[in-house]
Design a binder for these strands. Structure first.
Lengths: 238, 238
DNA sequence: TGTGGTACTGTCACTACCGACAGTATTTAC
DNA sequence: GTAAATACTGTCGGTAGTGACAGTACCACA
């Protein structure tokens, strides 16, 4: 099988995949690129703290343990850049950064290189995610490797991320019907029942009906509370 | 100059570019792909409405006028998918969608095809952005084109987006007082004015006073809308 | 000494919401 | 084929929210 073929196969499988199936696909991504290590992480930013919601990785356990135990993500300039920035973060760009050097030194003793990158991923709601790969090629070869593969990596990471979404539920899913979600959306946008009935071309009574169902499903008593929950759970296409 | 070379040149220039320089680069992206039309859009989700913060496009002016005048983005399932989803949206996937068909019909009369895609872009805060291209190849050739170029497109769009960030200033900060935030929090928790007055040991009238101030500061009209904004902006201590 | 911001309270009138009682039509799943 | 889920509508009566008219007291800053 050609490399190109393998890529499209992987992409197709990622597009279909849900939940736990993604774990084997995560392995296939690593095989495909033949990199040393990689990680996928989804973080909740709710309530002002950074809480890991979902994580897949092939880095050495001891290193990850050390990293999490010491909250190094707060010191790691690469992690912070990935959480606040938009474009892929090249590890090599931090080779002269004091904090990064310390982390590189530690990582190096676990067999992690300095030729890698961390790709920020699109999230809705109060979440952030990124995909990191430790390629481990020679520094001289890195710029070319990066250019050649960054497109493939970003696309695969995006689809892995999409497939992995359900594993990163901050709160349990309340499955609203399309109509219930729609009505809730307009309520969150400040529309009254009557206005929503005009927008959707249905009776005001029906709008109330959908909202009542939405409140019941969300286990709340007021529309405001329903909106709060829906926004928190990222169910509102605002 | 080889295609590959042109791509890397463009990518490099996008990485360096800021502000208005991006306009010519936008043109170069279109030349590079040789597509019919393309658009870049950055949208504010503040105050519950979708407000365009920044836009670059090469679609026919009349079509865009028609689209914006009629708030078609609220009906457009592709736009909504791009604003709520995380993976690229293939226009062809909506070829049987009623709402999309109407839009395709209108767009078609302006020379816009159905072979295109809209790529959601990563934003921080309550913003959303997407990059759309109308490729205009035969439907039979589209899947292959899509596969071949989606990586390049996504990367270029990401870097364009990053360079374009400064053009999309948002959010006059709404700083609520401690009391306003507190009352808003309890409203989000489903409490009525009377209940909140009991909780805080103040009169119901005063609770109303704080909520009214909060609504004004957030620029919204209903409590539900205020809660949506507050949660979205992370102003609610959950 | 004033000016502006915050914290608080009162009343009136109107509108919006919400629960509880209904009901019908259509689609999906066993 | 029927049960369940979805999409939709009607009416009554009570409670909650909303805007507009007020007002007082305290504190910080110029």
């Amino acid at each position: 099988m050609s490399r190109r073929q393998a890529y499209f196969d992987l992409l197709g499988d990622l597009e279909q995949a849900t939940g736990k199936e993604t774990e084997s696909l995560f392995g296939r991504i690593q095989e495909f690129f033949g990199v040393r290590h990689q990680s996928y992480m989804n973080i909740s930013l709710a309530a002002g703290r950074q809480k890991a919601l979902d994580m897949l990785h092939t880095f050495p356990e001891d290193l990850v343990q050390h990293y999490t135990d010491n909250d190094l993500h707060l010191v790691d300039p690469i992690a912070q850049a990935a959480l606040t920035g938009i474009t892929p973060v090249d590890w090599q760009a931090y080779i002269n950064n004091k904090n990064a050097q310390k982390l590189f030194a530690t990582a190096s003793s676990f067999g992690v290189s300095t030729t890698g990158m961390t790709i920020p991923l699109l999230c809705r709601g109060n979440q952030a995610a990124h995909f990191a790969i430790d390629v481990g090629v020679a520094v001289s070869e890195w710029p070319q490797y990066r250019r050649e593969h960054i497109g493939e990596i970003q696309i695969l990471a995006t689809y892995l991320h999409a497939a992995r979404q359900e594993m990163a539920q901050d709160l349990p899913e309340a499955d609203l019907t399309a109509r219930e979600a729609e009505v809730l959306k307009w309520t969150a946008a400040g529309k009254s029942y009557w206005e929503i009935s005009m927008i959707l071309g249905i009776s005001e009574r029906t709008v109330r009906f959908f909202m009542t169902n939405a409140r019941k499903k969300l286990g709340v008593v007021t529309n405001s509370q329903a909106v709060a929950q829906a926004v928190l759970r990222g169910m509102i296409p605002l």
